[in-house]
Simulated assay, not measured.
Amino acid sequence: MLELANLSKSYGSNTILEIDHFSIPSGIFWLLGHNGIGKTTLLKMIGGIEPFKGNIAFNGIDLRQSPVEYRRSVNIGEAEPLFPTFLKGKELIELFAKAKQAEATQVSFLLKTLDVHHYINTPIGSYSSGMIKKLSLILAFLGNPSLILLDEPLITLDKESQEMIQTLIINSWKERNVSFIISSHQELPITASSLSKIMIRDRKLVLLDNIINAGLL
């Protein structure tokens, strides 16, 4: 369970999010809202990489009070990540794997699944946008998270890779009960037994009706 309390975010005098209290249970959720409404900001706040006012806790672990423990349970894949260009992809994965206590078998599985072997040993500065997106997604799945936040996970990916991400999401939910909050302007080719939508409206969050046995649209 993700708990948001007295949560707010402003840029100067412009308040974009103001959430008194909102709870998000286990499951796969599609975060909706028009451009500039605060979807990316909200995911970064929940992911612990954007400052905020208020409180965020996941499964009883408070982000402010126990930041290391919290971040081991909550992973994030950004829409347009900025990685050190001088590092090789494999080096960055090794850093994240150590921090997230990921097993070597999991790293090998993700490298194979997203088919990155032909470039993972070269500097990130030479990567295309699609290569960077795959690297970002690998990092998002590393370790043993209970919640994964994915911001525009399908952009710059080919159809085959999009299908792979769909499979990873569904299998993670079914086999390990990993929850997801996904922001996407693209159609999400995901089906599951129970899917829900969350919308940002008037600076607040609204949980829309569940969609049973259907795609996220």
Rank of each mutant, 00 (worst) to 15 (best):
F83S: 02
A104H: 09
N121C: 06
I170C: 08
G77W: 09
L82R: 12
E175C: 01
K133S: 02
G36K: 01
A140C: 01
R176G: 04
F180L: 07
Q106M: 06
H21G: 11
P51C: 04
L195I: 13
D151C: 00
Q101Y: 08
I37R: 04
E160N: 13
I181D: 07
G38M: 03
S184K: 11
S184I: 15
G12T: 01
L95I: 12
T191R: 15
F86A: 08
A99Q: 13
L207G: 09
S8T: 13
P67A: 07
L114G: 03
E3K: 15
N75W: 11
S193E: 14
L168Q: 04
L82N: 09
T122F: 04
L87V: 10
L205S: 09
M199L: 14
G38P: 07
L111Q: 14
K9E: 00
E69I: 05
Y119R: 05
G77K: 04
G130Q: 08
I200Y: 06
I24T: 10
H117A: 14
L154G: 08
F52W: 01
I28F: 01
M1D: 12
E80C: 04
I16Q: 06
T167M: 08
L195A: 11
I165A: 13
R176D: 11
G125Q: 07
G33A: 12
L87R: 09
N55Q: 13
Y119I: 06
N6C: 10
P84I: 03
Q101A: 10
N14K: 15
L150H: 05
T15W: 05
I124A: 06
A104V: 10
E175Y: 03
N75F: 10
R203E: 10
R72L: 11
I200Q: 06
I76M: 13
L195H: 01
L87T: 08
Q101K: 15
S126C: 11
A99G: 06
K88F: 00
I211V: 15
I148S: 04
E175G: 03
L142R: 02
G130C: 13
K112P: 00
G48Q: 09
P145H: 00
L95W: 06
G125I: 00
L63Y: 10
E94I: 09
N59Q: 11
V206L: 13
A102T: 03
N6L: 06
K88W: 01
R64H: 08
Y127E: 02
L157D: 12
K44L: 06
L4E: 12
F96D: 00
D151A: 05
R72N: 15
R72A: 11
L216M: 15
I120T: 00
E152L: 06
S184W: 14
L188C: 07
I182G: 04
T105V: 07
P25H: 09
G12Q: 07
L188T: 02
D202Y: 09
G36Y: 07
H21R: 15
L92Q: 05
R203A: 03
T85N: 06
A97W: 01
L87S: 10
K88R: 15
S136K: 10
Q101W: 00
S136Y: 10
G33F: 05
W30T: 13
P51E: 00
L137F: 03
K197L: 14
D62F: 00
L7G: 03
L87N: 01
K90F: 11
I198S: 06
